[in-house]
């Protein structure tokens, strides 16, 4: 059976467009509101959902996603509840790929084999673990792959032609190109730089290449969609969630709608960036 990720990128290729990949943190700002947002994302145009596994020390993330993780943890988020969100989402959506993104320690603490089994059962399609480079990822990658879960590797502006083969050996699902050296929610790269980087990565692999970091407007999403197989937006959406909270960090009545409306505008941007 073809994986949801492969099926998604095939459909994108047929439609001659890039996939719109959205990131939100599981349990941010509350378990219930997070569930409502995730359920609404496909309707707002998300083709792939990245769901952040909250961690106290997200040292590769900027303030927006850091704060989202702290909000989620303060609200009682943990790995079981993250998987609950996936399971509930899968109950009425068997098509949209769901990728868990985060740091290794919560998985390690959960138990690697148990995590892979539970994640597969819940309907997780891929993992992006930012502090697990190829040199260290075998202990998770092999059991994850055996459970039918792709381990998505990251390529960055520091990935030269010498480094890329190490990154691509063992990669599956897609390649996530981190467009700028930095943390999430920071600077943006130019479309030209990204175009060159994506072409270089593609000369080493047949996997689709999605681009993230620094994409926060429909215009930027459109530009990325022209040159890559996927455009990832995270901090901008997460910031919309933060903007929709009251002083007690509880969601205001229209928060979920505002987040999904903004997501839909980004989705329009991606769809406007149709290729050739």
């Amino acid at each position: 059976m073809m994986s949801r990720l492969s099926a998604c990128f095939e459909r994108m290729a047929a439609e001659k467009r890039a996939a719109f990949v959205t990131f939100v943190t599981a349990g941010d700002p509350t378990h219930e509101a997070s569930m409502e947002i995730v359920r609404g994302l496909p309707g707002a145009g998300a083709d792939i959902i990245e769901l952040g596994m909250p961690f106290t020390d997200p040292s590769a993330d900027g303030p927006a996603i850091d704060k989202a993780a702290q909000r989620a943890i303060a609200g009682g988020a943990n790995m079981q509840r993250t998987l609950e969100i996936v399971r509930a989402f899968r109950a009425d959506n068997n098509e949209t790929p769901m990728v868990l993104m985060g740091y290794f320690n919560p998985i390690y603490a959960y138990g690697i084999d148990l995590f892979c089994a539970d994640a597969a059962e819940a309907g997780v399609d891929g993992l992006i673990i930012v502090d697990l480079p190829p040199e260290e990822d075998e202990e998770l990658r092999l059991p994850a792959n055996a459970a039918g879960i792709d381990v998505i590797r990251l390529a960055t502006p520091t990935s030269d032609d010498k480094r890329l083969p190490t990154i691509l050996d063992g990669a599956s699902g897609f390649v996530y190109y981190v467009a700028v050296a930095g943390v999430t929610g920071g600077k943006s790269a130019t479309a030209d730089d990204i175009d060159m980087a994506v072409k270089r990565i593609k000369s080493h692999t047949d996997l689709p290449v999605a681009v993230g970091f620094g994409i926060r407007s429909p215009e930027q999403a459109e530009a990325m969609a022209r040159v890559a197989d996927g455009a990832v937006v995270g901090s901008a959406i997460v910031s919309m969630i933060a903007g929709g909270l009251d002083e007690k960090a509880q969601p205001k009545p229209h928060m979920v709608k505002d987040v999904l409306d903004f997501t839909a505008k980004l989705a329009d941007g991606v769809r406007a960036g149709t290729k050739g």
Binding site: D131, E135, S159, V178, A181
Partner: peptide, 20 residues
């Protein structure tokens, strides 16, 4: 050679930092 002391140590950093 991979920086491990038994099963401890290693290089658990983001890909951007790995070449450095």
């Amino acid at each position: 050679e991979k920086g491990h002391f038994g099963k401890f140590g290693g290089r658990y950093v983001s890909e951007t930092l790995m070449p450095l």
